[in-house]
């Protein structure tokens, strides 16, 4: 790790203000992604702002029937929350399908949303990677790209966003509450939170520099059957090849978001007016750009969606 200085923030607004006051600052929450990347010198912050003790570790009901999840709520606690298990089961399921028990005890809601790609070339500092080193090229295009994106890719980057939780947040239409360095606050709809790679794969979200996440909100429960189906190379403790987050209503209509396909959780609302796995998958995957190694994801999405629809029917 490169040397850094360390301080503790006193409030969310203080964290945001501190982040722009000291050049090279980065927030540290659970640290399970950031420290991994710092050890490899993929991330080299000069100053860490510890945001763990700001009291943002509560899950509360809000007026109108939704919930507000503090940014520092640990993945284990979010998955185990009685209200989340009852009304937002897809979120519990997605969290429990990710990482390991130890990691979920440490990983936070905001940190999970902001975890960086698992593209093998991003992790290898000897390789060209536009995300890690803008302008250096992309070793994955034409390299080993079996698990990389097929939707919304660019000439610059074909990486995926690896968070399982984010896929469930997308299907639930979550909102990301933030405070900016100037002290103003806003809520970013999850659909607009992560960006497609375009020419700037190094910019992964629409947060501005120093903007600090305080909470994630979920609108009031929508009922239905909640399913998170993750397909991976081993049964536990592996990232998704693809995943489907679904909330299916008794009439068979549903909402579907997909992981492992793109630089953001992938959801095409227009497809949700259709019925049948083939039709829905066909619309969701319109414009897919595959490589010989990852073309398997196209039929895999349709089949996994088919399994999800069958499971929802009971």
């Amino acid at each position: 790790m490169k040397a850094f200085t360390f301080e503790r923030a006193h409030s969310p607004a203080d964290a945001a203000a501190k982040a722009v006051a000291t050049p090279g600052s980065t927030f540290i929450a659970g640290g399970t992604n950031l420290l991994d990347l710092m050890k490899l010198q993929i991330e080299t912050p000069r100053h860490l702002i510890d945001v763990n003790r700001l009291g943002l570790d509560k899950i509360e009901g809000v007026d109108g029937g939704g919930v507000r999840i503090g940014a520092l709520v640990r993945n284990t606690d979010l998955a185990a929350d009685a209200r989340v298990r009852k009304d937002y089961g897809v979120l519990s399921r997605a969290l429990l399908a990710g990482a390991s028990g130890q990691l979920r005890n440490k990983a936070t809601t905001a940190g999970n949303l902001l975890q960086r790609t698992r593209c093998p070339y991003f992790y290898d500092t000897n390789q060209a990677c536009n995300k890690r080193k803008p302008g250096s090229g992309c070793a994955a295009i034409g390299g080993f790209n079996r698990n990389l994106a097929i939707m919304g890719t660019s000439e610059a980057c074909i990486a995926t966003q690896p968070s399982d939780m984010a896929v469930a947040m997308r299907v639930l239409d979550a909102g990301v509450e933030t405070v900016k360095p100037d002290g103003t606050t806003r809520t970013i709809p999850i659909a607009d939170f992560h960006r497609l790679p375009g020419d700037t794969p190094n910019i992964e979200t629409n947060l501005i520099p120093g903007e600090f996440i305080t909470a994630v909100t979920l609108p009031k429960p929508i009922g239905g059957t909640h399913i998170y189906q993750k397909v991976r190379d081993r049964a536990s403790y592996a990232f998704a090849l693809i995943s489907v987050a679904a909330v299916v209503q008794p009439d068979g209509r549903g909402r579907f978001a997909f992981g492992g396909l793109a630089h953001k959780p992938w959801r095409v609302e227009a497809a949700e007016r259709l019925s049948g796995a083939k039709e829905i998958a066909g619309t969701v995957l319109a414009g897919a750009k595959t490589t010989p190694q990852n073309a398997f994801k196209v039929p895999l999405v349709e089949r996994t969606l088919g399994a999800v629809l069958a499971e929802a029917k009971g």
Binding site: F6, I28, G31, T32, L35, L48, D50, N52, L103, N105
Partner: peptide, 13 residues
């Protein structure tokens, strides 16, 4: 009271 990976956290935290 919770198990964690001690390699992925700073003592200072």
């Amino acid at each position: 009271g919770r198990r964690i990976n001690s390699c992925l956290t700073l003592a200072a935290m």
